[in-house]
Amino acid sequence: MATELELKLMLHSDYLKSASDFLDEICALSDTDDQSRQPTLALMNAYFDTENADLMQGGMALRIRAVNNTFIQTVKTRGSDRIGMHARGEWEWFIPNDHLDLSLLAEVPLPDVLQDMSWSRELIEVYRTDFERQVWNVRFQATTMEVVCDHGFVISPYGKDAICELELELKEGNEAGLYQFALQLAERVPVQVSIVSKAQRGVRLKYGQIEFPNKPLQTANTIVLAAYWYEVWLVYWEAMHFMEDEALMQPFRHSISQLKAYLPNDLVEVVNDLDRQLESCLMVEEVMMLTKLASIKQIGIAMLKIGQWLNQQTA
């Protein structure tokens, strides 16, 4: 079992080449394997669950990945809560074909509600992800990471959702290096922090629901309240683009204004600068608003700076 800690960044497809060029340039600064571009992969992933989404509700994802006729069965479980990041338990096994081997799950500490394995008799393939993955090994300061760029689709009987994202996975060092490298990238390419996994995208296609964090009591400490409004902000950003609904701009900005009340002065200035840029988007025709928003670098820079600060407070 490995614990996977990654920072996921969303970007518009118009900026894929810019992101790839930036990462190629970083790797060109070194001729060692710890900083180099790896072969591009074509990945197919089949995700399994019950009709009632018992695995998803229990906090587990089960998939088979096919890479060049090699099959890998993977289980991921929810790990510790990391603000704006993904921390999960992960188990992988090579298997001979594209059929699940559920006996391998004996190695996994399943969530309590799934331990009786009764759900295993009702498993179906609920969706697939098909995408191209570009891969870079990057060493930044004292942090070693794998950076991947995924471009493709989540496909299910309920529709299709585009995948266009970067994932920075920590291999050695600490998460501060991930954030610092991501900020360097965000100065060059408009990216935004994403907290929606590919598995959640597949579930979202079926239910059409946007999952918000649980609201804490108003008497909670300021860091808890800041973390809540930060994640609401990220959820509204993803929802606005998934639903292609410019009307969500209002709650998107409202969540930022609520968050501002709990931030230190330097980050308040970052948010104020962002809000001025968002105000200018209201003058753009609605049909162009989402494209305009996706081009604003300050959105991702603010998300990353605030996310890094929040994680420092809760470390």
Rank of each mutant, 00 (worst) to 15 (best):
D130K: 10
N311G: 07
L104R: 08
A28R: 04
Y127C: 15
L100W: 06
Q313R: 11
W91N: 04
Q200F: 05
P39K: 08
R188H: 13
A182N: 08
A239R: 00
I296A: 02
L62R: 00
I72P: 08
T314E: 14
Y207H: 14
A199I: 04
E279I: 04
D24Q: 09
K206Q: 14
Q73R: 10
E187S: 11
M243K: 14
V191W: 01
L105M: 14
T144S: 06
L114G: 09
L310H: 05
R253G: 10
F153G: 02
D161P: 03
N45W: 07
Y228Q: 09
V108F: 10
L5I: 14
N137K: 13
Q57C: 09
I124G: 00
N52A: 02
E246D: 14
N174I: 06
H254R: 11
A46K: 14
N174S: 13
E125P: 03
K76F: 06
R204S: 13
T3L: 15
V232F: 02
E6M: 03
D81Y: 12
N69E: 15
N45T: 10
D33G: 12
S197L: 02
R133M: 11
E187K: 13
V284D: 00
I301F: 03
A19S: 14
E175N: 09
S36R: 08
V196L: 01
V268Q: 14
L166E: 11
E6D: 05
L110A: 10
A162V: 15
A42M: 12
E165P: 03
H254N: 12
R188M: 07
L178P: 01
D31L: 11
Y127D: 11
W233I: 08
S36T: 08
L43W: 04
N174E: 14
L267K: 04
E167T: 07
F212I: 10
L55K: 09
D54H: 09
W119F: 07
D275M: 05
V270W: 00
Y228I: 06
M303F: 01
H12I: 06
D49P: 04
L267Y: 06
T314Y: 09
V113I: 15
I301R: 09
S18F: 02
R188C: 11
I95Y: 07
S194W: 06
H151G: 05
D21E: 11
N214I: 11
T50S: 11
W91S: 06
D116R: 07
P190E: 04
A220G: 10
E238N: 04
L5C: 05
A87V: 08
M1Y: 12
R63W: 04
K8G: 14
G177V: 03
V287W: 02
T291P: 01
I124H: 01
G84E: 01
M44R: 15
L205G: 13
E169F: 03
D266A: 12
V138W: 04
Q192A: 06
D275V: 00
L263G: 05
K206D: 07
G79C: 06
N45P: 02
G202E: 08
G84P: 00
V271K: 00
L11G: 03
Q184T: 08
A162Y: 10
P216K: 09
E167R: 10
W233K: 08
S197E: 03
Q38Y: 00
H99R: 14
I223F: 00
N272C: 11
D33A: 15
L293T: 02
